[in-house]
Write a protein that binds this DNA or RNA. Structure first.
Lengths: 206, 206
DNA sequence: CACTTATACGGAACAATGTTCCACTTAGCA
DNA sequence: TGCTAAGTGGAACATTGTTCCGTATAAGTG
């Protein structure tokens, strides 16, 4: 279910047509190699391994993707876009609160796609530095809209920041080492219930 | 298995008296060096650096602490014990729900103590492998008691697993790269509010 | 097509770090 | 004092990130 019917033309989204033919070919091969390696072995797989799988030298990898995060970004672009689109779709087909809950839950599949992506997002490792900005930058506006709509309709409280919620969601969505997502589901659900709780009652302060 | 009365003398907790004097000296020096290095530079500081700071060779480090996590464990033992003790103290001085909330919030200080400890707990890196088991093993029973008490008194719902909650808490408690804990506080508070919400639809909402 | 050149390539080379191994040192003991 | 098992230090090897540069070639140009 991950792979949708791609047109068979590789859409690398990273290849300005001004690029030399061999360069383009190598970029494509790298993306292809990285895609499979990231899924199987994780986003922290050695560069040499990816280079070998793509049949190029490491120099070529660094030429096109100076930082590891650049390679990851190129690869998860689709997933990020899909997550953003899901916000649109969900809000059309569900009540605001439910749409929000479903979108948050969908973060689990988003993060689960590439092994190690979750930890990478919060590790602070300089090799991944630009990843959080990229992901948060894309997803925050989408979540913001869902959250605002749900707040206005009264499905959830209105004192929660989209950025906080997204960060929390991404942290909880990261699967456990053994790849089990059941716990993630429960934790996300618990967090979402926090949105439904109205602090106006008793406490809520710590 | 609770720690029995530590005296305030340097309690390395890793030094059976059967140990040779020089070995004991080295272990102490290592713990001292590691403690400061972990706080300043993070738990992923190179072994060589720690060895140098302690004035020993790397072989000596590996002799006493075969895995990096062994060194970390020795160092955070106090903090873990303090967090466990806090459960006791809090439940004596607060209502059940409040005690639970405060304890969850205290995870932020616990995790914030050593730079990089949070990510290490969830990274899946084999060098830290035994850490999660160690930490969860100590903290889960404590949280379980708090959670159960709060559920019985009706302060929180009763369908949440202590392990799930602890995992979630630890993930959310991990500070952002810049060391800001404000967001962590808000996220934890939101999670705790999820405990107060009753999924059956009625009772939780006042 | 032959020639030129900017572009790209590959991989050797260097640096940082984890980890092992063993010749040498020394604490504890008789 | 001398013996021996325990402990030490750091050289040596393995892995990986990253840079650099001599070589190869795509794509124009005449």
């Amino acid at each position: 279910m991950v792979k949708t019917a791609d047109t068979d033309k590789e859409m690398t989204s990273d290849a300005p047509s001004s690029m030399r033919a061999d360069a383009r070919r190598n970029v494509d091969a790298l993306l292809e190699a990285a895609r499979s390696v990231f899924t199987e072995s994780g986003v922290d797989t050695p560069i040499r391994t990816i280079a070998a799988k793509a049949g190029v030298g490491v120099g070529t990898v660094y030429r096109h993707f100076p930082q590891r995060s650049d390679l990851i970004k190129a690869i998860i672009q689709r997933e990020v876009a899909a997550q953003v689109e899901a916000a649109e779709t969900l809000s059309k087909n569900h009540k605001t609160g439910e749409a929000l809950a479903l979108w948050m839950s969908r973060l689990i599949e988003f993060v689960g796609t590439k092994r190690g992506l979750g930890p990478a997002l919060h590790s602070g490792d300089p090799a991944y530095q630009s990843l959080p900005d990229f992901v948060l930058g894309q997803l925050t506006p989408a979540l913001h809209r869902l959250l605002k709509a749900a707040a206005i309709s009264g499905d959830v409280r209105d004192d929660v920041d989209a950025n906080d919620l997204l960060n929390a969601g991404l942290r909880l969505a990261t699967p456990t080492n053994d790849g089990d997502t059941a716990q993630a589901k429960r934790m996300i659900a618990l967090l979402v219930d926090g949105l439904r709780y109205s602090p106006s009652g008793t406490s809520g302060e710590v």
